[in-house]
Amino acid sequence: MSSIGLPQIAFLLEGLKWTVLLTLISFVGGGIFGLLVALARTAEIKALRVITATYIAVFQGTPLLMQLFVVYYGIGLLGVNVDPWLAVSTAYTLHASAFLGEIWRGSIQALPKGQTEAASALGLHYVARMKDVLLPQALKIATPATIGFLVQLLKGTSLASIVGFVELARAGNVISNQIFEPLPVYGLVGLLYFFMCWPLSIFGTRLEMRLASGSR
């Protein structure tokens, strides 16, 4: 009962599974909404730009933990029984959509203006211009930053433990309270996070260097 054995490791890995799932769901959901945010942020209609700029500023100017609390209790107000899963993944999806939206806005606007002008001159309307000309180029330069944010998001899912969602960090809390060995447990939890995030970080840095060193 006083050391990390197989049952404890199995419990941590079970938590890790939820960490990965939560990260994937929020990344995909955040990616879809983030694309809409980026498009609205670069739209010609001023109201859309102002609304999305405010949306992004709110998410970037408040702690992720508060976003979690507000969405968690906010959704709780709507219905009596809300699945914690739904609440937590909604919060992370909204969070990711703001950050990814801002990253992609930056890369859309970083493209030379000639790209938009040439596409328009060729008679392409908005959808074709975005889908076939601007977005493929923008997403390419945005890849390193996008991967950087994925690492942020993965680490950020640990905060879901504070609202009671059992993922890797929470599993660590439970085990640590159970066997009274906080240092090895949190050390192991930290290493598990590290070996998920580190390869992603290296991949992101490599891509960044490759992008910086040519292919223009």
Partner: peptide, 13 residues
Amino acid sequence: LIRNTPFLVQIFF
């Protein structure tokens, strides 16, 4: 090590 682990785990540790 620090950049690839969550702050929550660091502070608990």
